[in-house]
Amino acid sequence: MFEASLAQSAILKKVLDAIKDLLNEANFECTDDGIKVQAMDNSHVSLVSLELRSDGFEKYRCDRNLSMGVNLASMAKIMRCSSNSDKVTIKAQDDNPDKVSFIFESSNQERISDYEMKLMDIDADQLGIPDTEYSCVVKMPSAEFARICKDLNQFGESLVISCSKEGIKFSTSGDLGSANVKLAQTTDADKDDAVTIEMRSPVTLTFACRYLNHFTKATPLSSQVQLSMSDEIPLLVEYRIGDMGCIKYYLAPKIDD
C-alpha cells in the first residue's frame, strides 16, 4: 500500500504547475525516503529532478518501492479540482498499480472528493547526475530571475549569463536590438531580496531563453532561486519546496560551433 498526505494541496499544485509544461509524462518513484521524479523534456535539452521527502508529508506510508507512470497534464487537471487549503491524500496499491487515487478534504471536512487517474507504462532513460563543484553559485530573488528571463526573451532567443565577483549579467540580442541586466552582489545576504555570489572562477554561458521561461514556472514555490554554473556544462536552476524537497532544472548550454 502506498499512501501519502499533505496538509495543504497548494504545494502539490505548484509543483505540478512547475513541471507540466516542460514534461508530458514521468515516472514517480516512491520509496521509504519519499517521492522522486527525474525526466528529460521531449527535446532532451533539459532535465527535471524533483524530490519530495517523506518527512515533509503529514502522513507517509510506502510498504514497497513503487514506480507510477504519470501523465502530468492529467495530474495537473486533477490537482486543479482541489482548493489550496484542502488536505490531499495520494493512494495506490503497491503491487504494480494501474491507477492512483487522489482524495481532497476541505478544511471544514464538509467536502470530500476523490479522483482516480489511470497510470501509464513509461519507458524512460534514467540519467546519472554527477556531483559537481560549480565555478559560480548565485542565489537571487526568484521573481527577479523570472522577470529577467521574460523581459530579455523579447529581445533574443539566447541568454548569455556572465558571472564574476562584481555580479551577474544577463545579456541578449536579436533583430530588435540588444538588452543587458546586471545584478550586483548585495551586502545584506540574509534578506529575501539578496543577491549572493559564491565564485571560484568567472563563467560565461549561453542558454535558450524558452527553457529558462519554463523553469521559472516554479517561482511560486520559493522566494529565492539558486543558479549553479561552470563553463561548458549544464546550468542548474534550483527552487526549494518548503523544507520537504526541491526542484532542480538542468539546462544544456548552447556552444559556438
Binding site: M40, H44, V45, S46, L47, D125, Q126, L127, G128, I129, P130, S158, T206, A208, I233, P234, Y250, L251, A252, P253, K254, I255, D256, D257
Partner: peptide, 14 residues
C-alpha cells in the same frame, strides 16, 4: 551561431 547541445551528452545513462 551558438548550437544547442543535448542534456544527455553531459549525464551518463544509467
Amino acid at each position: 551561431m551558438a548550437l544547442q547541445t543535448s542534456i544527455a551528452e553531459y549525464f551518463n545513462l544509467r
